[in-house]
Design a protein around this nucleic acid. Structure first.
Length: 420
DNA sequence: GCGGATCAC
DNA sequence: AATGGTGATCCGC
């Protein structure tokens, strides 16, 4: 019975989009039940329960810490925080216009274009990477067999990496007209040069994506244009570059929608009575005392509606990794063979990217879903499959005996292949 | 530097 | 019977 568990655990099982979907409460109860019944007793489920208990412990300790602060005079802290926030306010930059391009259910959209009949049917792509079928309670990262229980007529298509790359390239090519990451485009200069409004520019971005994908169509690489329904929900929102508008926007924003606040942090903050941007304001003194400096800085910026306005900061890779999930494996020889495969794959990726690295990390997931990592920093950079295998093996031997369902190798402390 | 956790996509 | 892969960052030690 679900009653044996608490609310935060059910939220964990129900998944990240449970509250975003706008479901009826009766549907929600039914969906919860189906997911619970299908998961109950599995190692995955038990691991989720462990993780939830750890979270409850963290919350308890946090509340205990808060209790210690009761009755104290915190006016000094309040003054510090307010000074801090005035400083942040002074640095607010309203001069930039930035477009966030988000391809919702991208894989599914590509598949629908290849097969329009799918548009009227419940459909998902991949098992691990499933696009949301919200009204059925199906969510991202839900295993296929549970999704089928929620919606027996669901069509699950295998992942087709090559096919989606064409679509992705079109978006990237489009983004290259502005100097920034694919997801966020700074269109300030473009607007100045062309005299266009933000709405007109986003309209043009949509148009360009359509044209580029038509080019793929004529070259025979894709039968249909991609993202033709990008306007369908037309999820376009213009936030004016105006302090009052931004503050009002942030004020009622549920914290979970902030980039960087996930399931765990949401629960932690909710326990402290923080659900919206406005709550961050009201609780700022206690948050300053309870959270780490970095976390509080994040909260401060979010509460004031301060995003990043400089998108020119260049991206440099810090690590590169390969990991694989497989049937539970306890045989050492089999594990060594798997390590060999992963080392070979990683070496190939390193060669393609022309990088090498000096820190190797072995990641293992036990058959009970607990995860561990073991790493070693070397005096020199390595990059060959032989070296990756050699040092990976040393780390793997140390953990024997062990029954695992996942193995990964990561290389960090990276350098360009040519540098010494 | 290491290991565990969290997060995004 | 059955719950992904890649990369980043933060925290506490």
């Amino acid at each position: 019975e679900p009653t044996e568990t608490n609310a935060s655990f059910m939220a964990r099982i129900l998944g990240p989009s449970a509250n975003k979907a706008g479901l009826q409460s009766t549907d929600k109860a039914m969906i919860t039940r189906v997911i619970y019944e299908a998961s109950k007793g599995t190692p995955f489920f038990e691991n989720e329960r462990r993780k939830d208990q750890a979270l409850c412990g963290r919350i308890e300790r946090l509340l205990e810490k808060r209790k210690q602060l009761e009755g104290r005079d915190l006016t000094h802290i309040r003054k510090l925080v307010d000074m801090d926030w005035r400083q942040l306010e002074a640095e607010r930059d309203l001069s930039q216009t930035i477009v966030h391009v988000d391809m919702d259910a991208f894989y599914a959209a590509v598949e629908e274009l290849d097969n329009p009949e799918l548009k009227t049917k419940p459909m998902a792509v991949g098992v691990g990477a499933m696009d949301d079928g919200r009204k059925y309670g199906i969510r991202s990262a839900m295993p296929g067999y549970i999704a089928k229980k929620l919606c027996p007529e669901l069509i699950i298509l295998p992942l087709n990496g090559a096919k989606y790359k064409h679509g992705a390239r079109a978006v990237v090519a489009c983004a290259l007209t502005c100097p920034s990451t694919p997801a966020y485009l700074n269109i300030t200069n473009y607007m100045k040069e062309t005299g266009m409004t933000a709405e007109q520019v986003t309209q043009q971005i949509r148009q360009e994506i359509r044209m580029l994908t038509n080019a793929y169509q004529t070259s025979g690489q894709s039968k249909h244009q991609i993202c033709s329904d990008i306007n369908k929900p037309n999820g376009q929102y213009m936030l004016a570059n105006d302090r009052d508008t931004i503050m009002a926007f942030v004020r009622d924003m549920p914290i979970r929608r902030l980039n960087g606040i996930g399931r765990v942090t949401e629960q932690l903050l909710n326990a402290l009575g923080v659900h919206t941007g406005n709550d961050m304001h009201e609780q700022r003194v206690i948050l300053k005392l309870l959270l780490s400096p970095k976390s509080f800085e994040f909260i401060s910026r979010a509460a004031l509606g301060l995003g990043r306005t400089d998108l020119s900061i260049q991206y440099d890779r810090k690590s590169i990794s390969v990991e694989r999930t497989f049937r539970n494996m306890s045989d050492v020889q089999q594990q060594m063979d798997m390590l060999d495969k992963i080392a070979t794959k990683l070496a190939a990726n390193l060669e393609r990217k022309e990088i090498k690295g000096a820190t190797i990390t072995l990641k293992l997931k036990r058959s009970d879903f607990t995860v561990l990592s073991r790493s070693r920093s070397l005096a020199q950079c390595i990059f060959t499959a032989d070296d990756l295998y050699f040092y990976g093996k040393q780390l793997l031997v140390e953990e024997q005996p062990i029954d695992i369902r996942l193995m990964g190798l990561r290389l960090s402390s990276l350098q360009d292949m040519r540098s010494k």
